[in-house]
Design a binder for these strands. Sequence first.
DNA 1: CAAGTGCCTTTATC
DNA 2: AGATAAAGGCACT
Length: 289
Amino acid sequence: MKLKLSTDCPLNLDFTLCCGQAFRWNKQGEWWYGVVKGRACKLRQAENTLEFVNVESGFIKEYLGLDDDLPEIFAQISKDENMGLAIKAFSGLRILHQEPWECLISYICATYKNIAAIKRMLHELSKKFGEKTVFEERHFFTFPKAEKLAKASISGLAKCGLGYRAKYVSETAKMIHRTDFDLGCLKRLPYDEAKRELLHFHGVGPKVADCVLLFSLGKTEAFPVDVWIKRVIMRYYAEYFPKLAERISDKKSLTDREYAKLSRFGRDYFGKYAGYAQEYLYHYERTKV
DNA sequence: CAAGTGCCTTTATC
DNA sequence: AGATAAAGGCACT
């Protein structure tokens, strides 16, 4: 199945899938392989054509955020030179619309880990607790259901490399399973209310909540602040925090109050697409030499 | 190659 | 309220 991309609607599949938004896509040759909606599939891009196998076009459009008006978003977040450079470097990077359950567990696991390790953990978790499916004569694993993780032992989860996060994943899975909670319904709530709901889950703090809101619940104003974004803000936007800038060090983690200030700055400064600004700054800072 | 540092932070405890 | 420690282990230098 092929999809023609219009030139005023840029997509760069490699940027979008490669590092750090979703953790279960792997590139082999020209094709990106992944599992979505319990089904293995593959995608590739050749300039302005997107080709995909074993996944519906409606879903893939939604998943890749192809309905987001990127030129309009760029116009809104281009507030300064630094942001302009980040946009130039990563034009076509899109915010994914991931499946909320997988996204929530992924980011609970992602705390205080690097991307390579996160990928490994989520692969192990899927291998152990997901369902095997075969695609092109190769094995893939679906992301485990809440029930399965709720019934898993802490030590079984920990063996996937989760460490102390195993307990958080277990408790969150139990809560979701027990109440049969539909995370997708949070899409209909405003940002603040959806965030408050997410914070009830064990292992979910402000940063994890913002990631889930941005990457799976369509809240483009969410502005997650991790170590990299903290660095970016202190480097380029410190003038907006006259007092705070002295107290925040590269080593120490942010207090809730400090987190709230930096995240709010992002929303106020960049506007309703602050999340896009965040993601571009994140990749720009990480890949810079 | 060993050892040290850092990691898309949160929770528990003081 | 606010600071501080601990967490479990992998990846990178």
